[in-house]
């Protein structure tokens, strides 16, 4: 484009060292159109991810393969707008669904909960692939696994409500993370020993950026399995466990 100022090669070479949007040139004083559109597209992906919805049918079909009951649950946030404005409601299970939970109390070692969080796309795309590796490892270690719960408009702490309702000893909650411009489909895994309503984030361990082009399913499953084993051994999760997790190495 004629108005664009040429970018010296030494400057664009600096891109090797960072993913930041450096050396993008300018059109007058403004960001050139190409880069402006790239940014807009990334933001559009993030926005679409925030408003994406759980693929309930697709997830049911795939998750039933594991042979556990799959439960469809809902938080107290009635819709996305409510969910965004009232994080407190996203942390609580809708009363209408408590019965469904009560029929499935199996006192498992581990409850698995999948919540949309801020990107349903993330769990639609990543949850099954991770569980396919993780669940056999848990079963091999003689851990019992409870129903798999799918939660709409859920935040992290809703796992406490659900897992304690199932009388589970441990919860693994997979949730869509807040979309960024570089990735809108990052999934997080939150691990909580002895899940009870009222716990806060320092009681959990978190593994972040699980996605095809981020932390791989295999590596994520290894990390989760390691933390689960350590949690059961030391009877705790969260900050106290994190200090000793150096064995995991770099992601």
């Amino acid at each position: 484009m004629k108005n664009e100022i040429e970018i010296p090669q030494q400057l664009s070479a600096l891109r090797e060292f960072t993913a930041a949007r450096i050396a993008i040139g300018r059109a007058g004083n403004s960001i050139p159109l190409k880069q402006s559109m790239e940014f807009k597209l990334a933001h559009a992906h993030a926005r679409d991810a925030v408003y994406s919805t759980l693929d309930i049918d697709g997830l049911f079909t795939r998750l039933e393969v594991f042979g556990f009951p799959v439960l469809h649950l809902h938080s107290q946030a009635a819709n996305r707008h409510k969910y965004l404005k009232r994080p407190d409601l996203g942390r609580l299970l809708n009363d209408d669904y408590k019965e469904r939970l009560n029929c499935n109390v199996t006192n498992p070692d581990i409850a698995i909960i999948i919540a949309d969080g801020l990107s349903a796309e993330a769990v639609n795309g990543n949850a099954y692939s991770l569980l396919k590796i993780l669940i056999p490892k848990l079963l091999d270690a003689k851990l019992t696994v409870g129903p798999i719960c799918l939660v709409e408009h859920g935040r992290v702490a809703i796992g406490d409500d659900i897992a304690s309702g199932l009388k589970a000893r441990f919860s693994i909650l997979l949730i869509g993370e807040r979309p960024g411009l570089s990735a809108a489909d990052s999934m997080g895994a939150y691990l909580t020993y002895n899940p009870q309503p009222g716990l806060t984030d320092e009681s959990r361990n978190c593994i972040s950026n699980i996605r095809k082009h981020g932390l791989s399913y295999k590596h994520a499953a290894d990390k989760i399995f390691y933390l689960v084993s350590e949690s059961f051994r030391r009877k705790l999760s969260g900050v106290g466990l994190k200090d000793n997790a150096g064995l995991l190495g770099e992601s």
């Binding site: 960072t18 930041a20 949007r21 993008i24 004083n29 960001i31 880069q35 807040r178 411009l181």
Partner: peptide
């Protein structure tokens, strides 16, 4: 002033180097 408005560490969007130039001009 952030490269292209995109803070790749804090994961939010703020103002770019270009934005400040726009305002000054």
């Amino acid at each position: 002033g952030i490269p292209g408005s995109d803070d790749i560490m804090l994961n939010y969007q703020s103002t770019s180097f270009h934005d400040a130039l726009y305002l000054r001009k």
